[in-house]
Amino acid sequence: MSRKQVFFTFLLSGFVVFGYSQGAWVVPAADKAKKNPVASTAESIGKGKNLYNTHCKSCHGDPGKNNGLPLNPKPTDPASEQYQKNTDGEIFYKITNGRGAMPAFKATLPEQDRWHIINFVRSLSKKKVAENTSEPANQADTAQAPMIATETPSAQDTLMAEGKLRLALGFEEDSKTIYARAFRVKGGKTVPVSMVPVEIAVKRYFRDLRLSEAGTVTDENGYVSAIFPDDLPADTAGQVVIIARIPEAEQEQFSVAQVEVTKSWGVKLIPQNMKEARSLWNDNHKLPLWLLFSYLGAVAGVLVTFAYILSLIFKIYKIGKSSMNA
């Protein structure tokens, strides 16, 4: 793969990354557009509140206090702006299907109840967000546009004459090599930045797994690379989230200081059905063979002994009988 190709991957990945950082939970368009059929009455909101306290509060916390459980990803506070950006249809879809630690409620809560919860959640928002607010970052079909064009410089960016530093990820599929590149945009062109400390890592539940060596800095072309190991366990689809980031102390200079891309490079997790093999914890008909044979062997041994004893007693009986006859 040439440098050019690598860079093209960068351009594409930039959008995936952008989407991900916003919470890459993509809801199908039809579901997203779904309207709430339950009118937002005081009664509905009241019911929704009760349901929220029963089913949601334990993880999402008190609305507006941002005190949800410290999970990764953190359960969003329903009163937060980020949460309220969702359309009713999106919230409904997410409640219904769940993802990761968020359980699917389609079997637990009737549809009506899910809409009650949405009415309650909406009542928390001070400025109601219009439905169907489209989020460009979530729309994959705009991804064809070049990255630089969509990443409009923020107000802060324009304050700095040269524009801020950025980070992007690129991949070489065959060798499973990861490239992170530090660059800045100058007059519509990208300029590589060297000597920037960049860390390439794979996301895990707790601390991320670092792939690049500690203290690695970008070369004269702005690159840092790392090889993806062959034996890294991943989810059932083999997906892993690869991260490139700038150390916290240096992040201020960057407009994009961390990028994340999902790749299917990991070893697929094949969940084992614990009830498939013979085992002590399984049903009776799937008991371990050693147990079955020990049991049957012991019972058979006892029965054979009993039969033997009965034969001995029968002999006593026969001896007596024959001598009485004689």
């Binding site: 007693i313 002999k315 001896i319 007596g320 001598s323 009485m324």
Partner: peptide, 10 residues
Amino acid sequence: SANWIAVPEQ
């Protein structure tokens, strides 16, 4: 009593 006749075999 199983036809007990107190012979050594029994």
